[in-house]
Design a protein around this nucleic acid. Sequence first.
DNA 1: GTCTATAACGTGATAGAC
DNA 2: GTCTATCACGTTATAGAC
Lengths: 205, 205
Amino acid sequence: MPPTTEEKIKSAARTVFHSKGFAATKTRDIAKEAGINLALLNYYFRSKEKLFQIIMMDSIHSLFQSILPIFFEEETNFFEKIEKFVSLYIEKLKTDPEIPLFILSELQRNPLVILEQVPFKEIFETSVFHKQYESAIEKKELNSISYYHLLMNLAGLTVFPFIGKPIFFQVGNLTSEEFHRLMEERKKWIPIWIKQMLTNELQAS
Amino acid sequence: MPPTTEEKIKSAARTVFHSKGFAATKTRDIAKEAGINLALLNYYFRSKEKLFQIIMMDSIHSLFQSILPIFFEEETNFFEKIEKFVSLYIEKLKTDPEIPLFILSELQRNPLVILEQVPFKEIFETSVFHKQYESAIEKKELNSISYYHLLMNLAGLTVFPFIGKPIFFQVGNLTSEEFHRLMEERKKWIPIWIKQMLTNELQAS
DNA sequence: GTCTATAACGTGATAGAC
DNA sequence: GTCTATCACGTTATAGAC
C-alpha cells in the first residue's frame, strides 16, 4: 500500500522540522521534500503552525510512549527499570537522534504549548520507579542523593551523546559505526555507573 | 562610561539570538531590545548574518576560553583537572545557561561555520589532560574505558541539567533557588562520580 | 551617527482551473 | 485532490535627509 499524500506530507514535515526547527523551515521545503505542491500542504493541514503542532506532539509521543510503561511496571525492581530504560532509549535514539534537540530547542522558545500537554510531573511523581526509589532510600539501601540528581544523571548520560554528536564527531574523527558501537557499550555501562553512584561509599572531598 | 551604540546592539543581539536562535530572530527585535533604530544595525554590522557570526564566535569563545587552560595545565593531576573543570563550567552556566543549547541548535543547522573555527580536535588530542589519561590507563591506575565515554559523561553530567532545565522545572516545580542549590551540589558530586567510574571494580552484568 | 521612508525580496496562504 | 498563479504581508537592507 503506497503512502497517502497526507502521510507523505507528514513524513516530509517531520524530516524538515526535525533538522531545521520551526522558524527556519519553509513550507516550500516541506512540499519539495514530499514531492507535492505547496497548495496541498494547506489543503491537508490548513497552516504551517497546525502541521508543526502535529509533528511536535508526534515526536514527544514517539519519544516517551515506549519508555513510560517501564517506570510503571510492578514486576521489575529499581535497577532493572534503569537497565530497560537505558537500552530502549538508546535504541530509540539510534534511529531518531534528532528528536531530543528538536524538542529542547522548541521548548525554550514556546514552553507552554509543549509542557502543558505532557504530564511529566505526574509521570515521575506517581511512578512505581519513584516509589521504589523512595523506599530504598528509606531502608538505607541507597545513598541519599536527590531524585533530581538521579534523573539528571540518567538523562544526561543517555541523551547527551546524541545531542552533542556533531562535536564528538569533530573531536575524534568518529565514524557513524564507531559511534553506534560506543552507544551499544553505554547500554551496559550506564546502569553500572548509576548503580555505583547510588550504592558505593561516597567520600566527599 | 556608558555603552557605545555598537555595544548596545551586540548585547541586544546576544540576548535575542540566544533565546530565539538565528531564524526566529527578527532584526527589528534586536533593534527594539537595543533601543535604537533598525538602520543602525546595518550601519554597524552590515547584515543580520554578519552580526550573528560575531555573536556565535563570541559565545563559543566565552564558553571555552575559561575552561581550556585547565586541560593544558602541567601542575595539576588528572582528577584535579576534572574538579576544576566541573566547578568552573557550572559557574559559567549559572550565569549563561542558554549558550550550550544555542550552540548545539545552530550547529545542527550549519555545522561548517562553527566547527571549522573551533579546533575541538586539537584541543582534546594534544591536551595534558589526554596525556595524563592515557598514561594512567597504561599504568592500570584507571579502568580502561574509552576516552569518548569519559568526555560524554563529563559533558553530559555537567551540561545536560542546564539544557533540560525547563523539563526539570516542570517535573518538580523546581524553583530557581533550588535548581542553583542542586548545581552547587553537583560541583562536588560529579568529580566523585567520575572517579568511581574510572577506579572502582566494574562488574559487567 | 542617527533617523524616516521605502525598495526588494521571500514566505505563508488562497483563488480558481482542471 | 491536485495543480498554477497570485495575493498579502513581513522582513532585510538601503537611500537619503538631518
